[in-house]
Amino acid sequence: MIKVQEEDFDVGQEIKNLTQENHAIGGVASFLGLVRDIASNEEISAMTLEHYPGMTEKMLAEIEAEANRRWELDASLIIHRYGRMEPGEQIVLVITCSKHRKAAFESCEFLMDYLKTKAPFWKLEETSEGGKWVDARDSDDTAASRWIET
């Protein structure tokens, strides 16, 4: 399931929603991304996430379908927020549910690595010197490239 939304979310409730009707699930892995107050040694007062409505949902659905092709998952969820957020706020949540932990752990990491390099989101950080667009990091490409099937 894909949710692209401005509002905050409740991690516990989201896990419960995925698991309560499906008792074949034996393990749940999750990743929760938060807004930090420091980036590149600069203090951040807030961050605004811009995205490409339509393509965002399409890319996230493709990434989720790919994870379900590679691993046997009983349920999965990606929530990504957009708009203005302050340090400590939740930005992104990935949950994967499977019979055993290995598929849940691996697919959760895969989803985050792919999301970071493919989903059309851009971060604008607010610092004391004004707004600054965040540069993409090579390490994110490296993290995603290890999942390339040979």
Binding site: G33, L115, T117, A119, P120, F121, W122, K123, A136
Partner: peptide, 10 residues
Amino acid sequence: VALFPPVTGG
């Protein structure tokens, strides 16, 4: 057609 810089979400 959309033009944009490398993505920085997550």
